[in-house]
Amino acid sequence: MTHERHLLAILLENEAGALSRVVGLFAQRNYNIETLTVAPTEDTTLSRVTLTTSGDPSKVEQITKHLNRLIEVVKVIDLTEGDHIEREVMLAKVSAVGPERPEVKRTCDIFRGQIVDVSSDTYTIQLVGTTEKLDAFIRALAAGTILEVVRSGVSGIGRGGDKILSL
């Protein structure tokens, strides 16, 4: 059995309790959530969730069916079934003292990160990209330099002109 990663885009009514039903479903059915992002869309009556999970295709199909069964879920798409773009934002607080300070700056530039806050012995770096790129950045920094990391989780959208609601 293949345990692939799947990226689900979920449109749901922007109502109190709707998100807890989505999250509750995963716990209840023994499915895992790896990352989760949520915010209202251009239509403020709708929220959009991007959720990564893993499992064999039949399991992910079951998840999708169960999500569709929730009354407040308007649309569910498995973005990994087609061409799509995914991005994650990371803020990393990194130790930057002595000779390490310019080295950290150089690594940050190579990954097209931005230094968004500075202290006498740290940089806080903002980095946007795919999960793999963010992981690679963490690996590229010398061991022990990372003090704190926060990642947004993945947001995803399909490529091309089609809108999720018309799919």
């Binding site: 039949s58 199909e61 079951q62 069916k65 169960h66 569709n68 069964r69």
Partner: peptide
């Protein structure tokens, strides 16, 4: 009637 029951 319920797609989630099929092939479960």
């Amino acid at each position: 009637i319920d797609p989630a029951s099929i092939s479960k």
